[in-house]
Write a protein that binds this DNA or RNA. Structure first.
Length: 292
DNA sequence: AAGCAAGACAACCGCTGGTTC
DNA sequence: AGAACCAGCGGTTGTCTTGCT
């Protein structure tokens, strides 16, 4: 009887790396179960995939995390928890393994120390309860925005940071996660006509969810930069997509917007995230109003 | 210089969810 | 409907390096 050849484990050699790179250059990324055979490697498909994604893939950023990256990582972790792939998706060039390793060896330790100090201070100054935690609620949007102006008298107005809004485009925040059915979706603003309808019915949430066709390239990173030319319900809609999490991060500490239930649950849906994003934007306007 | 501990990171393992048949 | 297969994720382990005594 012929025994199967035992799969190789442990550190990769330069030769194996070259074989894997060559194979992926020839056949492309994916179909990992076929890769060991095609590449002539005595490795399991998981090992090949991991080696490629964490080490060999072009554009992987090596070296120390910058202060900005660490700052963003902490905020994203506050928001998302240990969803390393999601966090890594918003740190260009970083892999989930990198982020996870960095977190486990650096941030967690530092945070423990900082948390201790903060708890000491906060316990003396402020008691957090349900009354002083902001609750998210639906927001409305309009198109025809200028990136440099804010119309504070118009409660419908929504402005996204770092996003060019020409008069012909509609600002469309996008969720790069999944909805309650684990399907990717786009959340977009209503047309002007729909807004007119909504003005007469203020309780009607105008946030709409559109499914996105999943394909091989629909990564979180790609979703951040995708441009949507039309949607099924509004073929004329043209939008610039904004990453809600990053926009969220641009302003303030996200933890302030999470209520107790969200803190306590393992994960929250994209709809929750969406609502949080609305709330954050709303707070920005409240602050604006107070300043005028 | 030797021994040890801690840090850093590459790699493995087990599980989950999606897809196909 | 459900079994089999696959990709991907997060937790964990293993190993090498560095710093300290």
């Amino acid at each position: 009887m012929e025994w199967p050849v035992r799969l190789r484990k442990g550190a990769w050699t330069r030769e194996e790396d070259n074989l894997l790179i060559k194979c992926i250059q020839q056949h492309g990324e994916g179909r990992w179960h076929q890769v060991p055979l095609k590449a002539g490697l005595n490795r399991c498909r998981k090992s090949c995939r991991l080696r490629w994604l964490n080490y060999l893939k072009p554009n992987i950023k090596r070296g120390e995390f910058t202060i900005d990256e660490v700052d963003l990582m902490i905020k994203l972790h506050n928001l998302l928890g240990n969803r390393w792939s999601l966090i890594a998706g918003r740190l260009p060039g970083r892999t989930s393994n990198d982020v996870k390793n960095f977190w486990n060896t650096n941030v967690q330790k530092k945070r423990k120390y900082v948390d201790k100090e903060e708890v000491k201070v906060e316990s003396e100054t402020k008691i957090i309860n349900k009354n002083n935690i902001l609750k998210p609620r639906p927001r409305k949007f309009t198109k025809n925005l200028s990136s440099s102006t804010m119309n504070n008298s118009d409660d419908q107005l929504m402005l996204f940071p770092n996003c060019d809004a020409s008069s012909s485009s509609m600002m469309m925040p996008i969720s790069s996660l999944t909805n309650h059915q684990n399907k990717p979706f786009v959340a977009f603003s209503p047309t002007e006509n729909e807004n007119e309808t909504n003005k007469s019915n203020p309780d009607n949430s105008s946030c709409m969810m559109m499914p996105v066709h999943q394909n091989d390239h629909m990564s979180h990173e790609n979703l951040m930069s995708i441009k949507i030319s039309s949607t099924e319900s509004d073929p004329n809609a043209v939008g610039t997509v904004v990453d809600p999490i990053l926009s969220f991060h641009n302003h303030k500490d996200t933890s302030a917007f999470l209520d107790e239930e969200m803190w306590n649950c393992d994960s929250f849906s994209d709809l929750d995230l969406w609502n949080l994003f609305h709330k954050e934007q709303e707070e920005t306007f409240v602050g604006c109003d107070q300043n005028h």
